[in-house]
Design a protein around this nucleic acid. Structure first.
Lengths: 100, 100
DNA sequence: TCTGTATGTAACACAGCAGTTACATACAAT
DNA sequence: ATTGTATGTAACTGCTGTGTTACATACAGA
């Protein structure tokens, strides 16, 4: 459940959300945020250590990709509560709709 | 997405998990943890303010219940990633199995 | 080889959070 | 009324985490 603590930070959440759109190098990621580049560098390290991103080296650039396995674990944790929600069938419908 | 930050704390996570089993008063909840009762009292306040629990007054006792709506919002947030996971059909199967 | 570019790390500052003890409040029961 | 029980709040402490600036490293290209 480390993903929970790591994603509690809004900047890291935003980084992950952005990387879903596609891989980006560290500089491009940092440019999107109002904080310093070293701060982003450390966020990326935290995300890396939690297995939420992976980096590939290309010359000086480090290109980051998302790695969704930890989110899946978080989802599995949530699953234990899902059965308590009222309109289960509605959610299943939504789930099915999402598949298209 | 406040649920994420609130549940990042393992004690609060444990409180929520316990309350799933059924409502409990503040004292009983506190007794389960190795920290002081006032510490638990503040955790309960944080959970209350995030809408994750609700309390009902019964004489001096405050009985706490879980309130799962925020977890559902978290689940909705996760849903945007779910479609990226490889074995979608497997998960749908698991979801269906869970309904029984 | 030297210069510029891309990135991570070190050292430090500051804020916020979770913990503690002491105290206040409120109700029940004798 | 007084005492005991249940709970929350106040004030304070210490740690962790996020931010900053300055520096190190590494590669590309002129």
């Amino acid at each position: 459940m480390e993903a929970l603590t790591v994603l509690a930070d809004p900047t890291r959440r935003a980084i992950v959300e952005q990387l879903i759109e596609g891989p980006e190098d560290a500089g491009t990621i940092a440019a999107r945020f109002p904080v310093s580049r070293p701060a982003i560098s450390r966020h990326l390290r935290v995300l890396r250590e939690a297995g939420l991103v992976r980096s590939e080296t290309a010359a000086q650039r480090r290109v980051y990709h998302v790695e969704l396995e930890p989110l899946r674990e978080l989802d599995d944790w949530l699953a234990q509560y899902r059965s308590f929600w009222a309109d289960r069938l509605d959610r299943l419908d939504a789930h099915l709709a999402e598949e298209n």
